[in-house]
Design a binder for these strands. Sequence first.
RNA 1: GGGCCCGUAGCGCAGUCUGGUUAGCGUACCGGCCUUUUAAGCCGGCAGUCGAGGGUUCGAAUCCCUCCGGGCCCGCCA
Length: 529
Amino acid sequence: MHWIDAVANELVKRGGRQVIASGISISGHVHIGHSNDVFIADAVRRAVGELGLEAESVWCADDYDPMRRIPWPLNEGELAERYKQYLGFPYANIPSPDPNYRDFVDYFSRPFIESLKHFGIEVRIHSGAKAYRDGRMADLIKRSLENSETIRSILNQYRDKPLPDNWLPVDVVCENCGRISTTRAISWHGDFVSYRCEGADYVAGCGHEGEADYTSGGAKLTWRVEWPARWKLLGVTCEPFGKDHAVRGGSYDTGKLIARKVFDYEAPYPIPYEWVSMKGKKLSSSKGVVFTLKQWLEIAEPEILRYFIFRSKPMKAKVFDPGLPLLDLIDEYDLVERAYYDKTDEAGKREEQQRRIYELSQVGRVSETPIRRISYRFAAVLAQVTNDEEKIIKVLISRGMLVNPGELEIKLALRRLELARNWVMNYAPEHLRFKILEQVPAEILAALTPKQKQALGQLADDLAGREFTPVELHNHVYAVAEMTGQKPNELFQAIYRVLLGRDSGPRVGNFISALDREFVVSRFREASL
RNA sequence: GGGCCCGUAGCGCAGUCUGGUUAGCGUACCGGCCUUUUAAGCCGGCAGUCGAGGGUUCGAAUCCCUCCGGGCCCGCCA
């Protein structure tokens, strides 16, 4: 059984309406590592729904957290200077670097939120900042303040250095300098917390002393308390989270205790997961090691990312590489897809699992008509040769990559062409990239041997005379090489040189048949003179 | 100090939760197909003491214990 279903079963056993939460700090661009969170939460929602229980998934923006570090790309040049003043501010109170976005949070989170629908994710968006400002957290804050002593002792169980006696579980926004990470709460009464702006290790405080109204956003709960408070507020029954929270004595452990003792709430069913790294480097929004959902959609179908997440167990480390290894991932997906539609009599344990992974990878429902895709690798070649859609379809059909294609198949093929085109431009290794020469440099023409020239001329005549299929054409190159008394190798080189200016390239048959015939004929003729 | 993940064919991995016929897949490699294939296709083949040791069991890659090696996280904040 797939782990998503195992979780769903457990939730169904517990019964009741299910709320699966996910969320992250808006510390920069939201990347595909963060997507783990939402993707898992939403998949559980879907699986629970399939079992007939009401379920909802929520994505929480932790947008009232302080900015500890200026995230990429705001940490470069003039912007860095401008944003330095906001260190320690709650994200929600920082302006956007771009006038097209409302604020800092909008700037970093909107592209992510807008991408979600393309991946089939249906979540409710919850803003932490808004909850604080609207007073929806007020009761929970009050309860936390009343139970400060209990909370402190729970946290101290896992701390080397105990929290001070007068510690309070709130972080106050300084009304003078606007920072939240610099203040220390001193005491509280009614709806107010008094504080002093003392500073943090990465930014100085302003020394201001005052009182903040926590019922309207003047203060937030400290993370380890905020989390269980949010479970209570939203009625969370299940939540995936990064392995950092999952360590013994980590925020899940303390949250569980706080939830029970302070909020009279049972902690949600936990789903710890590993992070995603990119070429071995941990994804980091603040450091700019990012790969966003938007970037993903430019080079691969959304199903592939879902597959990437659901194919392995949540605690397995996932390594993403948008270069050549991406193609292996896509091939693997294509294979699973093909197997899904190839009906087999006996479905073993493994097949069963693969089928389920495929289903979970789908953006919507599984297509009833079998899906056939063209090879991404070939698309990467074809995309560099032409962008004439009609021609592309013709080539694909002539090569047998599309057989009596329906509308859907053509649409998928053209989309993949587009994705592959973007991939080649931005992520492909140099040796897979080529460009048709607009003109052949004189030195290339001069370096051609008489035999090569003769062969190219012959090819030009033959191509002008009749239509060749890719295979025929490839064979014909050999024939011409023999006819002109040279090794095939020499002719291949000549062909690549006059077309690409290089010694090698894509398979000649495919390659040339993808090109405009007139163009090839005139190019070969020119070279033969 | 505590916790997690990984170690299976040259390389990348699945299978481990729920133990059970000759341990799979991709890739690389080798060979074949079309008299010939620089990055297409199809077919076939090679290759593994399942990190090591011990235990449980009729039976262990799978469960338990110990150890070795690699990686990550927490012990500030999130």
